[in-house]
Simulated scan of single mutants.
Amino acid sequence: MSEDHRIARTSHPRKARGIRWFFTIVVILLGISLFVPTNYYVTRPGSAIALGPMIDVEDGKKDETGSFMLTTVRMGEANLGWYVYANISDEADLMQKQLVVSEGENNEDFVKREQAVMDNSQKIAEAVAFRLAGYDVQVENQGVWIMGTIEGFAAKGVLKIGDVITAVDGVRTPQATDLLQQLSGKKAGDQVEITYTRDGQEAKTMLTLKPLPNSQNVGIGVRPDNKQSIVIPKKVTIASQGIGGPSAGLMMALEIYDQLNTDLDLTKGYKIAGTGTIALDGAVGKIGGISHKIMAADKAGAEFFFAPEDEADPNSNYKEAVQTAERIGTSMQVVPVKNIDDALAFLQDQKQKPKQS
């Protein structure tokens, strides 16, 4: 055997060992990146989930030929690996942590808040759907629902997510605006008596006011919402499967309304996805992460997508949704909605989808 062949044969193992070491180092670095935190959350496309199996209306019908689908966004704290991925991928975005969770709020608090908001959204969706179907719905404002507390303020460590403030200095506060009204005109250092309920039990506490960030007003440091008692004439069960946030309001209202109308199939055989908060008057509100929801709906085969529209907003959900739909080349039609009536009018204009043979 020639010397050249001996050299060639002995050099291959060295080269192989070098390649193995290279990939070993890469794997180690990737592993380390999983434990390096950042000050960001990463968002990605979630799922488009049919609401029919999730929602049951007493004496309602479930014979629709198509489906209404809520859409979700996958969100989590971004480690270094996800940070790098989000900067090179069109399917992931970064959000600064302080835009997702309040200072001093942990991930558990965030999950509780999102679930509480989802519960409230469900109740409002039920009220809207039953009213549209001609039923009497009773709505009573019960107080100011605590969705979170701010670090460094008196409410932190005293009030919890889910508590309901019912009075300030003995004056009832049925809505969040009433809380603001009772605190207006007061100054930093003043103390107020807060009456609140927790797990059905009433309690009182004295809290000292501080200047609110980026505001000329003082406050106790809470993220408020309206807690309402909504009484509907039939039982509705919603298995939300741990999904949080208010953005499924519109689609839940449509599904409930469809089940209440036993002689009508709103879907007409189509897969209909969408997003948007819902108010008691049926108004549809803006949400976050709509680009990811468009991608999720497209992947699930949706044919229509309802997107909140605000013509005065240059960055409205609808405009962003259309841009994303064009970018990914979907055949799904994006439909602008300002009110649930817009969605219903669009559906009524559609012809029944031919059955596939």
Rank of each mutant, 00 (worst) to 15 (best):
V158Q: 03
V158H: 06
L159A: 04
K160E: 11
K160S: 11
K160W: 08
K160I: 06
I161C: 05
I161Q: 11
I165D: 07
T166C: 02
A167L: 07
G170C: 04
G170F: 01
G170T: 01
G170I: 01
V171F: 07
R172H: 02
R172I: 04
T173P: 09
T173K: 04
L180E: 10
L180R: 11
Q181K: 15
Q181T: 08
L183D: 00
L183R: 04
S184Y: 07
K186I: 03
K186N: 02
K187N: 12
A188L: 02
G189V: 12
Q191K: 13
V192S: 05
V192N: 01
E193V: 10
I194K: 01
T195P: 04
Y196C: 06
T197D: 10
R198Y: 09
R198V: 08
D199A: 12
G200K: 07
Q201M: 10
Q201F: 05
E202K: 13
K204W: 08
K204E: 13
T205R: 11
M206L: 15
T208D: 08
L209M: 09
K210R: 15
K210L: 14
P213S: 00
N214L: 12
Q216G: 15
N217H: 14
V218D: 00
G219Y: 10
G219F: 09
G219R: 11
G221I: 10
V222A: 13
R223T: 15
P224Y: 05
D225L: 04
N226I: 15
N226R: 14
K227L: 14
K227P: 06
K227C: 13
V231G: 13
I232H: 10
I232P: 12
P233A: 09
P233M: 08
K234T: 07
K234A: 14
K235V: 15
A239K: 13
S240Q: 11
S240L: 13
S240R: 12
Q241D: 10
Q241A: 13
G242Q: 04
G242W: 10
I243S: 03
I243G: 02
G244T: 05
G244F: 06
G244H: 06
P246S: 04
S247C: 08
S247D: 06
S247G: 11
G249W: 03
L250I: 00
A253D: 03
L254R: 02
L254W: 00
